[in-house]
């Protein structure tokens, strides 16, 4: 039983210009929820990828619609819902191809999905007919004090 739950919501016009705003929103909530800088960057990246998919696929780059990002924080996890009212595009149905294959196909959209799947612990999609499409992504909190060292990062 979670003893607290907080919800944050951002709604912006469906333009890629607003991706920076969306990332800042996710980063701010992630930091407040206690995720470190590297984790927060990855959360912002996953939500950026999901919103990019909505703008480019669900809304076909039309800037007159709205994208909603709702974040729910509790003791166990941080959950993101990316909501649109465009044509349903279920990214969870796309095959998980190896990066080499994505490169061969020049599929940066496939790369985005791969990032979402890698970063998040759970990804689900649902269509509420005639109302909305919703991509739900959950990242569980890690046990405290796991300061992960950079794996082979160049100095």
């Amino acid at each position: 039983m979670a003893s607290f739950e907080r919800t944050f919501c951002l709604q912006v016009p469906s333009s890629t210009e607003n991706l920076a705003l969306i990332r800042e929103f996710v980063s701010a909530v992630g930091e407040q929820a206690g995720f470190d800088e590297n984790e927060t960057l990855k959360l912002a990246l996953a939500v950026d990828e999901a919103c990019t998919n909505v703008i480019e696929h669900a809304y076909q780059n039309e800037e007159t619609h709205e994208v909603t990002v709702r974040v729910t924080v509790d003791e166990d996890a941080i959950a993101f819902e990316v909501i649109d009212r465009g044509r349903g595009f279920d990214p969870t149905q796309e095959p998980a191809l190896p990066v080499e294959e994505l490169i061969r196909r020049r599929s940066s959209g496939g790369l985005g999905l791969r990032l979402i799947r890698t970063i998040m612990d759970d990804v689900q999609y649902r269509i509420v007919a005639g109302q909305k499409n919703e991509l739900r992504m959950v990242k569980k909190r890690r046990p405290a004090k796991s300061a992960t060292p950079e794996p082979g990062a160049p100095r």
Binding site: E37, N38, L41, K42, L45, V99, E100, I103, L111, R114, L115, T118, I119, E150, P151, G152, A153, P154, R155
Partner: peptide, 24 residues
């Protein structure tokens, strides 16, 4: 070249270091 660690982790997640020549 000269990728900041926080950005490098994104390349790393996708396996780019095996496919691109990345130098310090």
């Amino acid at each position: 070249a000269s990728i900041q660690p926080k950005v490098y982790q994104i390349f790393d997640v996708l396996g780019f270091p095996a496919l691109f020549d990345i130098q310090p």
